[in-house]
């Protein structure tokens, strides 16, 4: 298992290695703030500013992760950048279609999905489509 990880790690480009290393701290921060959001933001006894702060805190870590991703886009070579931009474009297109589909179905009162489920589902579609297209493009150029 460790050998598999080492061979996977060595197969990554230097820019991707730097990106994954740089993403560890903001990733952990996101997990901690998401846990804090889960347990603290719903405490009725807590002052409202603290509740709002803890409710939105994971967004800060997400912004940090996005900044590191933008650094990676500047750092990587041209083929990696082509793969990333291709995956981002496909994921954005697929998610936009899903947004329109959900919006039209909700507007026509054909479905009655809770807003939280819709937002979560759209986020999942964005991440999954990005990961699948990125993997496919990497295989194309492998």
């Amino acid at each position: 298992m460790k050998g598999l990880f080492v061979s996977y790690w060595q197969g990554l480009s230097p820019a991707l290695q730097r990106y994954y290393r740089a993403g560890i701290v903001p990733g952990l921060a996101f997990l901690c703030l998401a846990a804090a959001h889960e347990f603290v933001s719903r405490q009725a006894g807590l002052a409202m500013p603290w509740r709002v702060g803890f409710a939105l805190a994971p967004v800060l870590a997400l912004g940090w992760m996005f900044a590191i991703y933008l650094d990676f886009l500047r750092d990587c070579d041209e083929l990696e950048r082509r793969i990333e931009l291709g995956a981002l474009a496909w994921a954005a297109g697929i998610t936009l279609n899903a947004v329109m589909t959900a919006l039209l179905l909700l507007d026509a009162h054909l479905v009655n999905w809770p807003a939280k489920d819709v937002a979560g589902g759209l986020g999942l579609i964005l991440l999954c489509s990005y990961a699948l297209i990125r993997g496919r493009l990497h295989r194309r150029y492998a």
């Binding site: 480009s13 230097p14 990587c76 070579d77 041209e78 083929l79 990696e80 990497h138 150029y141 492998a142």
Partner: peptide
């Protein structure tokens, strides 16, 4: 060339 090995292969 300061690129990834994948780029050279491609």
């Amino acid at each position: 060339l300061d690129v990834s090995r994948q780029t050279i292969n491609a």
